[in-house]
Design a protein around this nucleic acid. Structure first.
Lengths: 357, 357
DNA sequence: CTGTTAGCGCCTTCAT
DNA sequence: ATGAAGGCGCTAACAG
C-alpha cells in the first residue's frame, strides 16, 4: 500500500503518472497505449501494459468523465412496484441489464423520479446536469413518448425496452413479440380442444395490450372461433377476477381464458377458486410474462417467458453501437417469447407421478 | 459521440464560473456560499443563491469527485434471482433504497459480481479502483462475513441489511425481527385453535433461519405445544412441498404449518393441492416476506411484511451518519415485521361477500 | 512515435 | 469576507 506522491491516495490508488514512471515513459504515452494503441510503438506498448498489469492500474472514471464528458454510466429509472402486480421482471431485468453493462465496460446508475412522464424527464435532466451520463435505458415506451422527445432534443443516446409504437424508426429498441406470444398461447389452448376462448386484455390505450390482443384474434380467426369473449381492463388482479366471472357467467361461457398478463391470469384463478372450479381441469388459463409467481402457484400458470437476458444484452449492444457513432440505422430487435406450459392450461389432473408444476 | 469537444458544455451545463459572473463574485465565493455558508456575507450569499437558482446550477459530480475523492455514489450488488424463489423484495428494496439515497443527495450504482463472497469482494475492489464510491450497502450478512472484513480493511463506510450475527457491533445494520415475526404467525394460528403446528425452516447454517425458528419455538413453549414437527431445508418450493407431505403423513399430522419464507409456504400449498386439501380450511399456512406472490395466490397467503421502505431509509441514514463522521456508535435498527392475514390461515370458507384475499 | 502544454469543474490553502 | 493560485487524474492538441 504505497501512498501517492502528494496527498493521501486512498486504497492505494494507482495513477497514470505512476504507471508512466514505472515504464519510463510519459503519462500521455500510457494513455495512448490504453486508448489509441496504434499511436504507440508495439515495443513501448508492451512495456507499458506490463507496468499497468503490475501496478494494477485502473483509469479513474471521475477524471475521465471530467475530461471526456463521458462517464461510462448508463442510467435507468425504476418504477415503484405495485402491490397487486405479479410482473416483477424488473428485478431480473435489472440484473441482466447491469451484467451486460458491466461486461461492456459500463455501470448502471439508478434514477429516481416522481410518477409520470414529466417527473421522469425532470429526473433525467437533473441527473445530466449533475454528472455526465453516457446513455439512458427506457422501459415501456408509448406512442408519442415525451421522454423520447426530450432525450433526443438533448442529444443523449438511449435505447428502449419496448418498440416505438409510432413507427419512428430512428430510435433504438428491443422488444418482445406480444402478438406472436398470445397467438401461441391461444393455439395451445385450442389444441387442447377449447372452442370458447376468451381474452382478458388491457385498455385500448395500451399499445402493448393491443398487440397482445391481436395475437389472440389471429389465432381465433385462423380457427374460425368466435371472438365475442373479450375484456379490456386495467392490469390488476381484481380486474382479471371480475372479467373472469363475467365470461364464466355468459350464456355460452368461456372454457379457456388467455390473459395479457400473469396478474390478470391470477385474477382468473382467484375467480375460479371462488367458484370452486379447478384451473386446467375446468377452465384453461394462460398468462403472460412468466413472473416468478407463475411457477409458484398451484397448479403452475402457463405463461409466456420473455427472453429477458437477451433483451438486456441487446439494449446494451444498441447503446454501444450508438456511442461508437455507428452510422447504420439504430437497432430494432424483436424477440420471440417462449410458451411455458404448466398445469393451468392442461385438462388432465396429475396423470404422471411428476407433480403438476 | 463527440469526445474532447472544447466548445460550450452540452445540455446547457452551467458551471461555477458562470454563476459567479452572474452574481458578480468569484467562483470560490459561489463554492463557499454552497458548501461553507458561514464563510460568506449573508448579503452576498443571497445574491449568489439567486444566481444559482436562476441559472439552474448543479455542481458537477465528476469534478467534485475528482477533487474531493467523494462521488456521492452508493454501491449495491444485486443477486441473480432464482427461478423458484418468491421473495422478490429486492425489486421493492432497490426502489426505496434508491429513493432514500436520492433524497439524501446520493445515487445508487449497481455492482456486478461473480457468485460467492470472493467474487463480490473483487467486484467491490474493482469498482473502488475505478471510481470513488462513498459507501456500500450489503445484504444478507452472515457470521464472519468476509465482505465486512474487506470493506472495513479498506476503510470504506458501509451499512448492512441484516444484523451482524457475531455480535460485532461496530458495524451499522438494519434488520427485521424474524423471531418476533414467526412468533406472531404462530400465535395467530394457535389462536385459530391449532395445536399441531409444524415449522418448515431453513438449514441450521442460516442465522436468519435459526432466528425465525426461535419465534416458533417461543410461541409453542408459551402454549406448551409440542415442537416435534419441524424441518430444516433449503429455501425452495420443492423442499417446502416435500416437508409438508412429511408433516401431513405423520401419525399425528400437522394442522398448521408456519414457514420461514413465502417460497416454502407456496411449496406447502402445492402439497395441499396435490392432496386435494384446501389451504386455510383444511390446513393453516403462513409464509414470510409478503412477496408479491403472497397477495396473488388463491387463497391469499398469510405472511409477514417486512417494513422495507423503513429499512431503506434507515440504511441511508446510517450511511449518512457514518459519512458525517458521527462519533457515536454505528446504528443498529431492529424493525418489527407486520403480520398480514389472508385466507391461507383462516378456517372459514368465504363467510362474507368479500372475496377471500 | 513521443513528450509538453493546457484545461475539464471544483475546492483547499493561502493571501489580500 | 473575498479572491488568486494550484492541482485532483486524465487526454486532445500540438509540438519535437
Amino acid at each position: 500500500m504505497q501512498h501517492g506522491n502528494r496527498g493521501p491516495a486512498p486504497h492505494g490508488h494507482v495513477t497514470l503518472v505512476q504507471v508512466a514512471q514505472r515504464a519510463g515513459v510519459s503519462a500521455q504515452s500510457v494513455s495512448n497505449a490504453l486508448n489509441n494503441p496504434d499511436r504507440v510503438a508495439p515495443e513501448t506498448r508492451k512495456r507499458i501494459l506490463a507496468a499497468v498489469e503490475e501496478l494494477g492500474y485502473e483509469p479513474n472514471l471521475s477524471a475521465r468523465a471530467l475530461r471526456n464528458r463521458s462517464s461510462s454510466l448508463i442510467a435507468f429509472k425504476m418504477r415503484p412496484s405495485r402491490p397487486d402486480k405479479a410482473s416483477l421482471l424488473m428485478d431480473d431485468f435489472l440484473y441482466v441489464l447491469n451484467a451486460a453493462a458491466v461486461e461492456a465496460g459500463y455501470h448502471l446508475i439508478l434514477c429516481h423520479a416522481e410518477d409520470g412522464p414529466a417527473g421522469e424527464i425532470k429526473a433525467y435532466r437533473d441527473l445530466l446536469k449533475k454528472t455526465s451520463i453516457d446513455a439512458f435505458v427506457l422501459a415501456e415506451t408509448h406512442h408519442n413518448d415525451d421522454r423520447v422527445a426530450a432525450l433526443r432534443s438533448w442529444g443523449v443516446p438511449f435505447a428502449s425496452f419496448g418498440r416505438s409504437w409510432d413507427g419512428d424508426d430512428s430510435l433504438a429498441w428491443v422488444d418482445v413479440d406480444g402478438r406472436a406470444g398470445t397467438r401461441a398461447a391461444t393455439d395451445h389452448v385450442a389444441a387442447q380442444g377449447h372452442r370458447r376462448i376468451g381474452h382478458i386484455g388491457w385498455l385500448a390505450e395500451s399499445e402493448l395490450g393491443q398487440d397482445r390482443r391481436e395475437g389472440w384474434l389471429d389465432a381465433c380467426r385462423d380457427r374460425e372461433l368466435e371472438t365475442d369473449l373479450q375484456a379490456a381492463v386495467v392490469d390488476s388482479l381484481e380486474a382479471g377476477r371480475q372479467a373472469a366471472h363475467r365470461m364464466l357467467d355468459a350464456s355460452r361461457p368461456a372454457t379457456a381464458l388467455v390473459c395479457a398478463s400473469d396478474t390478470l391470469a391470477l385474477g382468473v384463478m382467484r375467480a375460479l377458486h371462488e367458484r370452486g372450479l379447478r384451473p386446467g381441469a375446468d377452465v384453461a388459463i394462460t398468462g403472460y410474462d412468466d413472473s416468478p409467481t407463475a411457477a409458484l402457484v398451484s397448479p403452475g400458470l402457463t405463461t409466456l417467458r420473455q427472453p429477458i437476458d437477451e433483451v438486456g444484452r441487446q439494449l446494451i449492444q444498441a447503446i454501444d453501437n450508438l456511442m461508437a457513432g455507428d452510422p447504420r440505422e439504430p437497432q430494432h430487435v424483436l424477440l420471440e417469447p417462449e410458451l411455458v406450459v404448466r398445469g393451468s392450461s392442461l385438462p388432465g389432473p396429475r396423470t404422471s407421478a411428476v407433480p403438476t408444476s
